[in-house]
């Protein structure tokens, strides 16, 4: 069965039409999760609000459990989907750059689009920054980044395979770690907010 579009079971226009609805769901999830509020997002790094961690891991794990469950019953062939290739050197460097960008900017590209479209001025500034960054990257690509970008290529690497376990077991382990983390971060959040009360985010009017 799935994925439908790569096997040409649905047409191109229908595929793009579906994309809009998937986007709407994604946008609602991000906005309703509180991702348009940069202080909520940054809270994960200072311990006063862990909503990012909760939303993020719930989303990734729901996706992983659902997809591999469907895969095991033949409803989708994960090998036919967009399976990211791993280039560990640029990914690691870029990840750290993005981590710095996260602390400074308080958004990631997806959440900044939500913030900008709901009128958050810092979100609009961030979106502008992303465009500047990509334009800069595009014009310096051949001289600065082209070589680095394809270093450390490992192909379509699967982490469970690299660790020598089944996909199902790996997801289950991550799930257990995530659930423990959910409980622990609630305790941390409580303690941080008692010790040094940060103004309640809702009171900031966001």
């Amino acid at each position: 069965m799935g994925p439908l579009f790569p096997q040409e079971l649905i047409s191109d226009p229908l595929n793009l039409f579906i994309a809009i609805f998937i986007g709407i769901g994604f946008g609602i999830g991000l906005e309703a999760g509180g991702f348009t509020n940069t202080r909520k997002l940054a809270g994960v790094f200072y311990g006063y609000d862990f909503v990012v961690l909760k939303v993020f891991f719930t989303a990734a794990l729901t996706g992983a459990i659902g997809l591999f469950l469907m895969d095991s019953y033949g409803l989708i062939d994960i090998n036919l989907t967009f399976y990211p290739k791993t280039f560990w050197i640029p990914t690691l460097i870029a990840g750290i750059v993005m981590g710095l960008g996260f602390i400074l900017g308080g958004f990631c590209p997806g959440t900044s689009i939500c913030a900008a479209s709901t009128g958050k001025i810092d979100g609009i500034a961030f979106v502008g920054g992303v465009f500047i960054g990509i334009f800069g990257y595009a014009f310096t690509y051949e001289s600065l980044f082209q070589n680095l970008r394809s270093k450390g290529g490992l192909g379509k690497a699967n982490i469970a395979e690299k660790l020598g376990m089944s996909n199902e077991l790996f997801i289950f382990i991550v799930l257990i770690i995530a659930i423990i983390a959910f409980i622990v971060v609630d305790k941390i959040q409580k303690r941080v907010n008692e010790k040094k009360p940060v103004e309640k985010i809702e009171e900031l009017g966001l």
């Binding site: 459990i65 591999f68 469950l69 095991s72 199902e168 077991l169 997801i171 289950f172 799930l175």
Partner: peptide, 11 residues
């Protein structure tokens, strides 16, 4: 999530 996770493990 836990229940579906266990289901996945069993499958």
């Amino acid at each position: 999530m836990l229940i579906t996770g266990i289901w996945l493990l069993m499958s």
